[in-house]
């Protein structure tokens, strides 16, 4: 993994979905991703912060692989999802990197607009997902085969701002897609690594901002060691701990005296009353 990514990605989890092994290769090397030998359904590569899956061609494969990777990683909060791949374009030069501002599923007629509330690291473009290779270059925008399937699946797992599609122009009317060799595909993706780094830094910043709002898992575990909470009670506990953090950060969300309280229901009630009192005192 590059230093720049290390410095900004400290707590966020990145999922990369690519269609081809040739697209994955430069990413594996750049981010130091190692093959997960336990996975047989799809090739999966990972390091401490990033997982990459090779989906195979097409939107259904992309959606299925995205779901598989999500299931594999468990529900990591605020994770980043990025689809990277090559695309054809009617007029853009080969090697141009494009961030999708609109993803159109050509066969379904469905259009999505990934929100882009960050400093854009490159130009943005309409991306059209087709079911079969399209060498007519009649569509406006970048034409490829995975983005809509990926987007549809990944947007279920994290907030939309953290789900993006990045495409590199690999062919146009002047450069035939049928002549593309795997090495050329790898080279095209390889040329985009610094832009991808910048994009992941932006997304990492957004992801970290959300993660920092959560209650530390260690603190929650401490409570769960002493009391048993239903799911609803756990949500209530988290809300109270957040309020407590605002009103009395120094207390660090823990009062040893409360260990005398036998039941979670009573604990939450006393906690709530304590915070109401604090709220008036510290307004």
């Amino acid at each position: 993994m590059t230093d720049s990514l290390c410095s900004t990605q400290d707590s966020s989890w990145v999922n990369l979905v690519v269609a081809l092994a040739a697209e994955a290769k430069p990413l594996q090397s750049w981010y130091g991703l190692k093959r997960d030998a336990t996975q047989r359904a799809y090739p999966v590569f990972r390091n401490q912060h990033i997982a990459l899956i090779i989906s195979g061609l097409g939107k259904l494969n992309a959606a299925a692989a995205t779901g598989y990777l999500h299931a594999l990683n468990g529900s990591v909060s605020n994770s980043i999802w990025l689809n990277i791949g090559i695309a054809g374009h009617a007029h853009r030069p080969v090697g141009t990197g494009l961030l999708a501002h609109q993803v159109v599923d050509a066969s379904m007629g469905v259009t999505s607009y990934p929100p882009l509330p960050f400093e854009l690291p490159c130009v943005t473009e309409r991306v059209v997902t087709v079911d079969t290779p399209d060498l007519a270059y009649a569509q406006a925008g970048a034409v490829e085969m995975e983005a809509s399937g990926f987007l549809h699946a990944a947007q279920r797992y994290t907030t939309r701002e953290l789900v993006q599609c990045y495409k590199v122009v690999s062919d146009n009317p002047g450069q035939d897609a049928r002549q593309l060799e795997p090495a050329a595909v790898s080279a095209l993706i390889g040329q985009q690594l610094s832009t991808l780094d910048r994009l992941l830094q932006q997304l990492g910043r957004l992801s970290n901002e959300l993660t920092e709002l959560s209650i530390e898992p260690e603190l929650l575990r401490r409570y769960q060691q002493h009391w048993r909470f239903t799911v609803t009670q756990r949500h209530r506990l988290e809300a109270l701990l957040k309020r407590w953090r605002v009103l009395a950060p120094a207390a660090q969300g823990w009062n040893p005296d409360w260990r005398r309280i036998p039941h979670s229901k009573q604990l939450l009630s006393e906690m709530s009353a304590h915070l109401d009192q604090l709220a008036v005192e510290r307004a």
Partner: peptide, 23 residues
């Protein structure tokens, strides 16, 4: 970016107001 209706961008669920407010 052209769109048919503003609601395609404005209304979908799963957006984060806080993140979008930054830009």
């Amino acid at each position: 970016i052209e769109c048919d209706r503003y609601t395609e961008i404005f209304n979908p669920a799963g957006q984060n107001f806080r993140l979008q407010k930054q830009r």
